[in-house]
Amino acid sequence: MASCDKLVDAGRRQFLRGAGFGVAGAAAAAIVPQQAAAAPGQARVNYPSNRLGNISDLTLNEAFDTSYPDDSAPGVLLKLGTPVEGGVGPDGDIVGFSTICPHKGFPMSFDANDRTLNCPGHYSRFDCEKGGQQVWGHATQNLPQYILRVADNGDIFAEGLDELLYGRLSNVL
């Protein structure tokens, strides 16, 4: 088992790797501060609408790495095969989650056997079929889930989050 230090490094690598995704997110994030400056005092952050992929990109029960709302916030899209609450797409089975553990920020991996996201730092587990509910663990919140929209051509857009992301005091930086 890797030491804590190695896990931190793994986390950093994960973030760097995540930079290859979510170009649209990065662009949108760059625009947000200007919008915020033009409309001060809004009660909530303005979430970008980012295209994360197309339904055709997804394989049943396989993690599709992505990021949202910007390239330093890694996440995952999943096609689960059965309709779930919060699921989108023709089968109501597509969901997206942050993959940073809300306990201490380690990168989590998807276990296809029981469709959970699991943290190697301190063993927390989140159920992708139950809205990211923490099955067992240390986080004081359930896993931030993407609010998704599917366009007519099958493009999947993320347009919001339902919990605060680890490591930032504003979901949109």
Partner: peptide, 17 residues
């Protein structure tokens, strides 16, 4: 704080805190 903080950062707190 305008950038993402690392794992185990002391510079973050959850809504429960």
């Amino acid at each position: 704080l305008a950038v993402q903080q690392d794992p185990e950062t002391p510079n973050w707190y959850a809504p429960s805190m």
